[in-house]
Design a protein around this nucleic acid. Structure first.
Lengths: 252, 252
DNA sequence: ATCATAGTCGTCTGCCTGACGATAAACACT
DNA sequence: AGTGTTTATCGTCAGGCAGACGACTATGAT
């Protein structure tokens, strides 16, 4: 049977990005303002069409670089923090998710250290880091007094899935270090866990756990006092990617 | 900017299925023989095009029913085993993964109890349950003496990802019960874990663990002796979906 | 000097797991 | 009936890890 183009319906394929970071003790996601219908003026996740000759991961990495300037961390170069973490999240293909046409979106999850202000085509007012709780709430007002409207399309669902993925993944992997700068202290890492999980952790037990897990942290020898208080040791992320036994998230 | 159809390249979107079951103490996947090029005559994962008005999950459920007759378990009807478990796995979109055209495949993972012989358009020789180790090995001969050829397309990668998902998911969820009939014994559940993980587990510690986890198993009151030996209590899957603390997979 | 802040080291207790002994209840033989 | 085999189930014990929390250290602020 020869190839028959009429045998299947054509789809548009996009990548959407859930880019998470930790700023001011809270988990934030990158949001961009839509400049055109549908959902004109509303906030949405960054994303765009996959090009004809592009792999899905390539497309996601390209969009991430366009929106944030971040390069993607290459796991082939271990023990070197050369960019953000990027992984596929899930794919969303409800026939009505985009009113214009049939669009299947392959969502990706990116984790990045705290960054300077985002850029979106050079226009800062069209991109921002927003606390995920603010982006997911249905109505009301944000911390800046701006009225909150739900995210465009099914992006609230996508963001929610991405946050849940991040929350569970830092339990059993060393991924929380992706939120930290190349060198960081145990306290900074703990504040990442606290922001992502939204709980307070015991500094002493946390310190024992992360320094006692082989391959999680590698001391660099330096110390810092940037957080105030007694100077803290600086660490880099070690080679271990899976934590066994995992970090335990306190029960609700 | 008005909607411009020429602004994006058209894709074909398919769903591919990794259908796993446990037969004769080994983890098996459903494979179908390709009747047409490319990869004519080779084994592949079942799958097909997503229709124009179909959600991705609907398409996967439809393909699953067409290939196996299984209906999908509806989590809205708890404590009742009314079909197989189905979840999205990952999406594969390398531009060259199908030599004919640009195809993005949304792979799904299905877990089913041991079934009678599969059907594929009524032709039994074109569908079979094969041990995953056999499907993933690169060359040699299967247990029936038939020469082994690698799976078509990137299906070896997809199958491998699906198996890995199943292996890790039964650690922290009650999903292993999806491999069991509606009523089962602790020993049968243990043999599921042993087959999926490929290890031997201590029957006494396993029994203590699963019966001691609240909500994992619900005794039905009946007993059976179908495995030989002392009669065993029968259980149904309980309402719990997440196991806390998880089942621990013995280290390699 | 005193206080506040943050980091680091210990101790203790309870829970869970892995290793493994012992008993129970069926079937297959002889 | 007796013996062996198989599978299920209950118990015991030691080691490891996590939660709770005390104590001490080293900095900056007042």
């Amino acid at each position: 049977m020869p190839y028959d183009p009429s045998a299947f319906p054509p789809f548009a394929v996009t990548v959407d990005l859930v880019v998470l970071t930790v700023r001011r003790h809270s988990l934030c996601a990158l949001a961009v303002r839509r400049g055109e219908p549908p959902f004109q003026g509303r906030w949405a996740l960054p994303g765009g069409f996959v090009r004809a000759d592009e792999d899905l991961a390539q497309a996601a990495a390209r969009e991430l670089a366009e929106e944030t300037g971040l390069r993607v961390h290459d796991p082939a170069i271990p023990a070197q923090d050369n960019g953000a973490h990027l992984e596929q999240l899930a794919t969303y293909g409800d026939p009505k998710r985009d009113p214009r046409m049939r669009v299947v979106s392959v969502a990706h999850l990116a984790l990045a250290p705290d960054l300077p202000a985002p850029r979106a085509g050079g226009d800062a007012s069209n991109a921002r880091w927003a606390p995920v709780g603010e982006l997911l709430q249905q109505d009301g007002y944000g911390r800046d007094g701006e009225p909150v409207a739900p995210l465009a399309f099914d992006h609230a669902q996508i963001l929610s899935d991405g946050v849940e993925r991040a929350r569970s993944k830092i339990e059993y992997s060393s991924l929380a270090t992706a939120f930290c700068p190349p060198e960081f202290t145990v306290g900074e890492l703990r504040r990442v866990y606290e922001a992502v999980w939204g709980v307070a952790l015991d500094p002493r037990n946390f310190h024992r756990k992360v320094t006692g897990t082989p391959g999680f942290l590698v001391p660099t020898g330096g110390t810092t006092t940037r957080q105030g208080g007694r100077p803290a040791q600086l660490f880099r992320a070690g080679g271990a990617t899976l934590l066994n036994p995992p970090m335990l998230r306190p029960e609700v």
